[in-house]
Design a protein around this nucleic acid. Structure first.
Length: 405
RNA sequence: GGAGGGAUACCCAAGUGGCUAAAGGGGGCAGACUGUAAAUCUGUUGGCUGGUGCCUUCGAUGGUUCGAAUCCAUCUCCCUCCA
C-alpha cells in the first residue's frame, strides 16, 4: 500500500493539483516535499501536529521531507483565515520561536543523514532586493487573480494591508527556492493554504518550466466546525511546560464522541482496522476508544513515560485505582496550616481569585478529599492531609493534589 | 488631503448626566441528568469583603459637575464616502 493510499484511507487529503500524477509520483519515486511552519508562537500546537503526522507518514514511505520554518514569512504574517491583522512580531521573537520549533520537530521527524531537511526561509527572504524581486517574481502575479483567492476575500471586507498581501508571493518564492535548491516538487499544507500552494506551483512552472505539485489536507476541526486544539485557556501546545502532559491527555480523553474516529485516524499510527473498530463503539463503550486515543497521542507527543503517567493519574482519579502519584501536584509548607483554604488555593494558582473560590464553594463545586466544602471560611488543617497530601477537586473532573512539606 | 461614523467587560452588542459593576446574546464556570461525551434545564460570570460596604473598569489624557461610560478639549487607533 503506497503512502498515497495511506493518506487517502486515513482521510488526510483534501485537495490536489494533479491527483493521478501525484499518486504515480509517490508510488514510483522518492519525492522531496515541503511543509511550511510560521514561527508565530514559541511552541508548536495541535494543528501543527497533524502536519507532522503527514510528514512522518511520508518519511516512513521513503520520501524526503523539508520542514520549512517561516522565519521570513512570519515577518509579514499570513492573512489567511484571520479577520484582522495580527500583531507584528519582532525579529528576536521570531528567531526565538524558530529555535523552539526546531527542537520540537526533531522529536517527530528524523533529520539524521539527510533523511529530512530543516530549512528557514529567512535565509533567502530577508536579503531580497525589492526592485529585483518585483521584476523577477512580481511580474508573474496578477493582482486581479490574487484578489479572487478565497484567502483574501474576507480580508477585503475588513481591510488588508499591502504587507500581508505580499505573503502569497513570498510563499510562492519559497517553493521556487526549494525546487531549485533541493529538487522539491511537492508542497503540502492545511487546506487553508490552497491558494498559496497554487501560487507556488504556478511560479515554479513559469520560472523553471518544471511541473510541481500541491496537496492539502483536512484541517483539524471538531464536528461543529471549530478549530480543534483550542480551549478557553488557549491552544493545546506540544510543549510540556505550556500544556502539561496530564492536561494534554485529558483534552483527548474528553473529545466529542463524533470526533474520535477522525482523531484516531489522523493523529495516531494505529492500523485503520483498529481505528474503525474503536470508532464504531457506541455509548459508554466509546470511552475505551477515547482512552486509546488519549494514550496514543500523548505517547507520540510526550513519549511513553509521560503517557503512562497521565493514564495512571486518570485511572486513579476517575476509576479509583488508587495510585495518585502522577496527579498534578502543588506543594505548601506547614506554616500555611491554619490559613484560609481559599487563600492557599489562590496562592498555589489552583483558583484565580478568592471571589471565584467563594463562588465555587457557594455553588457546591469544591471538594477536599471527596468531601464537599460548604464553608467559605474553611481553614486548612493537618488532618486534611492523609499520607502527606490532600486531594482537591473542582467541579466534576478537575483535580489537584496538594502536598504538605 | 476633505467629509462623516466608530472604539463598552473573554467575544458580539445595548446604554447618551445619578436608579450602571453596566441590558441582551455567545462563551466560560458550577449544579441537575450522564459515560470524564453531546444535547437539555438551573444558577453564576471584575477584585477585596462573613454580610453592610469599599476599590478598579466603558480607547488614552486632561477638564466641567455634588455626581460622567454618558458633557467638553486634546490625542491614538479603526471604518465609510470623496480626492
Amino acid at each position: 500500500m503506497s503512502v498515497f493510499d495511506v493518506l487517502k484511507e486515513r482521510n488526510f487529503i483534501q485537495q490536489m493539483t494533479h491527483e493521478d500524477e501525484i499518486k504515480e509520483l509517490l508510488e514510483k519515486e522518492k519525492v522531496t516535499f515541503y511543509i511550511g511552519f510560521d514561527p508565530t508562537a514559541d511552541s508548536l500546537h495541535v494543528g501543527h501536529f497533524l502536519q507532522l503526522m503527514v510528514m512522518a507518514h511520508m518519511q516512513r514511505a521513503g520520501h524526503r521531507p523539508i520542514a520549512l520554518i517561516g522565519g521570513g514569512t512570519a515577518m509579514v504574517g499570513d492573512p489567511t483565515g484571520k479577520t484582522d491583522m495580527r500583531k507584528m512580531l519582532t525579529k528576536e521573537e521570531i528567531f526565538h520561536n524558530a529555535e523552539a520549533f526546531k527542537r520540537q520537530m526533531s522529536r517527530f521527524i528524523d533529520f539524521s543523514d539527510g533523511k529530512a531537511i530543516l530549512a528557514n526561509n529567512a535565509d533567502w527572504l530577508l536579503n531580497l532586493n525589492y526592485v529585483e524581486f518585483l521584476r523577477d517574481i512580481g511580474i508573474h502575479f496578477s493582482v486581479n487573480k490574487m484578489l479572487t483567492a478565497e484567502c483574501f476575500k474576507t480580508r477585503l471586507e475588513r481591510g488588508l494591508s499591502f504587507l500581508e498581501f505580499n505573503y502569497m508571493l513570498m510563499q510562492a518564492y519559497d517553493f521556487l527556492m526549494l525546487n531549485k535548491e533541493y529538487g522539491c516538487v511537492l508542497q503540502m499544507g492545511g487546506d487553508d493554504q490552497w491558494s498559496n500552494i497554487l501560487a507556488g506551483v504556478d511560479l515554479v512552472r513559469r520560472k523553471e518550466g518544471k511541473q510541481a505539485y500541491g496537496m492539502t489536507f483536512t484541517l483539524l476541526t471538531t464536528s461543529e466546525g471549530k478549530k480543534m486544539g483550542k480551549t478557553e485557556k488557549g491552544a493545546i501546545w506540544l510543549d510540556a511546560d505550556k500544556t502539561p502532559p496530564y492536561d494534554f491527555y485529558q483534552y483527548w480523553r474528553n473529545i466529542d464522541d463524533s470526533d474520535v474516529e477522525k482523531c484516531l485516524s489522523l493523529l495516531t499510527f494505529l492500523p485503520m482496522d483498529e481505528v474503525r473498530r474503536l470508532g464504531s463503539l457506541k455509548d459508554k463503550e466509546i470511552n475505551e476508544a477515547k482512552k486509546v486515543l488519549a494514550y496514543e497521542v500523548t505517547k507520540l507527543v510526550h513519549g511513553v513515560d509521560e503517557a503512562e503517567k497521565a493514564k495512571k493519574a486518570a485511572e486513579a482519579l476517575f476509576e479509583g485505582s488508587g495510585d495518585l502519584s502522577n496527579v498534578p501536584t502543588s506543594t505548601i509548607t506547614s506554616n500555611m496550616l491554619g490559613s484560609n483554604l481559599l487563600d492557599v488555593l489562590v496562592k498555589t494558582g489552583i483558583i484565580p481569585s478568592k471571589s471565584e473560590g467563594r463562588r465555587l464553594i457557594t455553588q457546591g463545586g469544591l471538594y477536599v478529599n471527596d468531601e464537599n466544602v460548604k464553608d467559605i471560611n474553611a481553614i486548612v488543617t493537618e488532618d486534611m492531609f492523609r499520607q502527606g497530601y490532600m486531594l482537591l477537586r473542582r467541579g466534576k473532573k478537575s483535580y489537584n493534589k496538594i502536598i504538605l512539606q
